[in-house]
Design a protein around this nucleic acid. Sequence first.
DNA 1: TAAATTACTTGCATTTTGCAAGTTATAATT
DNA 2: AATTATAACTTGCAAAATGCAAGTAATTTA
Lengths: 152, 152
Amino acid sequence: MKKDKNKLRSHCPVNYGLEAFGDRWALLILRDIIFRGKRTYGEFLSSEEGFATNILASRLDHLVEQGILQREGDKTDGRKSVYTLTEKGFDLIPLLFEMILWSAKYDNQSEAKRIAPLVELIRKDNRRIRKISQTAKEQVKQGIALAREYSS
Amino acid sequence: MKKDKNKLRSHCPVNYGLEAFGDRWALLILRDIIFRGKRTYGEFLSSEEGFATNILASRLDHLVEQGILQREGDKTDGRKSVYTLTEKGFDLIPLLFEMILWSAKYDNQSEAKRIAPLVELIRKDNRRIRKISQTAKEQVKQGIALAREYSS
DNA sequence: TAAATTACTTGCATTTTGCAAGTTATAATT
DNA sequence: AATTATAACTTGCAAAATGCAAGTAATTTA
């Protein structure tokens, strides 16, 4: 990963995104939260792509530092930390949708085939999904709800 | 990078995208082609983010293997190779647009501030940009033309 | 109170990256 | 025609990042 010390290589918007979330593992964490409802270290660890424990920890730290995730202690189990999206994190959902659309088109073994209705919905109107409700957080919460509904 | 040997970690559409193009340097190459009109190894090397020569070569190879770029010899200068987008590559433009929108919102030093009209256009209707014309290649060529026009 | 769990950290071998310095093929210059 | 320059890489090697396996510390459950 990067040293994070606020020294971006450039403020090109593509580069900014890459430095903030554009890391293989960081994006898989976001996927797990958004599409799979995961929230804790242990849940992320169980992903099929196989996080190394130290890498997972460093990426969670990074996403929290970037303001994309927030970490809170679990109310009922003091051992657990719960990671949830901030608004900045929620706003990455349309980007993940675009990745899904692209992969659904070009990976002929894509698991997206199993969620064809969602993919079709996104393809037809990604923007409408974003606009379902007004406030930023509500808007994308509904996007997530939709995503979960269709992918389950 | 990966060993590329067709052994994806998973066919999750997010993971597929990450393995195909989701690498810091690969996406910067695509940015250079799409928004800056670059086409040759030497032009990519001059990017402000600083490609290492071997990494640039390996990423270009990877993108060609993935069918995202195509490499051709320059007609008039036999030393040069020209890299251009395939349809599969063109189809990544909406994803880059989403990155730009996100970074424009959250990086207060974003260079996207300089291309506010384009950002606003994308924000208002990313999908319309994609639909400007019918054929896949033409459609996004016009997207590129628009992007260049507004960012220059 | 002992055994599990959860969220990490540490040590170390392997892999990837980043420079600097080649190399090869073609093109331009003298 | 010979020399120099340019374009696109490759190679070697040190430094950094990654991937395991094996801890550790703070709860929680049995």
